[in-house]
Design a protein around this nucleic acid. Structure first.
Lengths: 250, 250
DNA sequence: TAGTTTAGTTGACGTAGATCAATTAGCTAC
DNA sequence: GTAGCTAATTGATCTACGTCAACTAAACTA
């Protein structure tokens, strides 16, 4: 099936280190950090990127309150970020797919404001932030891009606030499906055949719903012929209807 | 009363332009942009800051989708940011008090993602972002500070997501009161005698509640002896109890 | 192969907060 | 002074989603 996340692809499974020897040759370069840089600048970025062993499912990339030192790019797999409130309940703050950057919440106070854990086997690029700051002083493109990245995360978080505070369960779930579909498309994966890397619990937590409500809404969408869903395998049958539901007012 | 917002102070009302001839002498310098800069760097910041006429209540600073060019610092008064969803409903995304920076949501796509409107007569400093980028290239302190500012806004937005998706009406409102109280304290205003610059409608919208629920919770807090409230005049009687409620789990 | 654990589904019922509606109190206009 | 507004409060009722509980089906293990 075309939509299976690429961490299952042989290349990643058998030689994860070779999957991207450098940023210039990485197949995510068009959507990841190199996006904003010129050829010779990518070389400089490349020198500071660290490519580690792949993370196993359940392994943490960093934990809330850890000393902040790096941001991370997902190369394959999927990562979940979550924070713990004073009262001990978990809040999933984001899902990160290949080409996406996480860890930027640590810049403000030199400590990560959230924990990040692999939801499946994942290859990760680590970029020490001190090096990013140096490079940003030298390369205006780099500085501009990071300002943009941070600002875009603000905008997304504000959209998410609207989603969870003003929208129904159906609108929230439709919105998540549409978002994942669009992010799949950006990576040249099928936007209609999706393997959800996260559990119902994570989805519910992220959307401010219970697992039961998530399950019921999935069932309702299936009954209406908008999707087919079997555990984590999701087939989108009517993306336009979902987009319409996602953009509905309350 | 000590807690009245300083836009009512004669100095601001009668000579708003003299209130801060430059950043170095501005009484908000300890909490605003100059915070992170050395003396000689503040001079450079000062050269790019534009201090305009005060905004009247209801006047806009910028509107959603306007071309992005500047970020703004509130010098006196209070500003509300809000965005309009596809479906036309308003979402209040933040309240900005003196010393606070807004407009950074525009960096990512060169258009403001929200509108900003004065909730009362407000003096505003405008800082063209192109100049900030230039200056950030030259002054590492400046670059670092802006990265931090952006990151902190991300962290705050994520806290707000938790607030509206996992907390009760009482916890949300207690949280807002505690936040405004703390921000008053930062400006050396009374943390217990507060003049709320925003309407019940704005509070409800910001917290994901209806105006009726906001009103009822205020009344309940008053009945419990935690606050006294008369329209926009709020006296905090038991800040510890409010902090406790604000940090409660769901 | 049965026994336990974990993720997900579905149903019955309860509740926090929304909705609808009536009332009050300032404010402006004339 | 009173008519018309708008912001806020308070009460009565409704409902979307949460809670509690029973059940199914993988997946793990011993």
């Amino acid at each position: 099936m075309i939509a299976v996340s690429e961490h299952n692809a042989p290349s990643d499974k058998h030689c994860p280190h070779n999957a991207a020897i450098n940023c210039a040759s990485c197949r995510l370069s068009a959507i990841c950090l190199p996006l904003a840089l010129a050829q010779d600048e990518i070389v400089q970025l490349d020198e500071i990127v660290q490519r580690g062993r792949p993370l196993q499912k359940g392994q943490h990339l960093y934990r809330e309150n850890d000393h902040f030192s790096s941001v991370f790019a997902v190369r394959s797999g999927a990562v979940k970020a979550y924070s713990m409130s004073d009262s001990g309940e978990e809040q999933v703050t984001g899902f990160y797919l290949p080409g996406e950057i996480l860890g930027m919440d640590g810049i403000g106070h030199n400590r990560y404001a959230s924990s990040a854990v692999a939801m499946e086997v994942s290859a990760i690029c680590e970029i020490p932030f001190a090096n990013i700051e140096d490079l940003s002083g030298k390369l205006p493109n780099m500085q501009k891009h990071f300002f943009k990245l941070l600002s875009q995360e603000i905008v997304e978080d504000q959209r998410h606030i609207t989603l969870v505070s003003k929208h129904t369960a159906e609108e929230r779930l439709a919105s998540l499906i549409v978002s994942i579909s669009a992010r799949n498309a950006r990576r040249n994966l099928s936007p209609l055949n999706i393997r959800l890397p996260m559990s119902r619990t994570d989805i519910g937590n992220f959307l401010g719903l219970t697992i039961e409500t998530v399950s019921r809404v999935f069932s309702r969408f299936a009954k209406q012929g908008l999707i087919e869903i079997d555990k984590k395998e999701l087939v989108v049958l009517d993306i336009d209807a979902l987009k319409h539901i996602a953009s509905l007012g309350h």
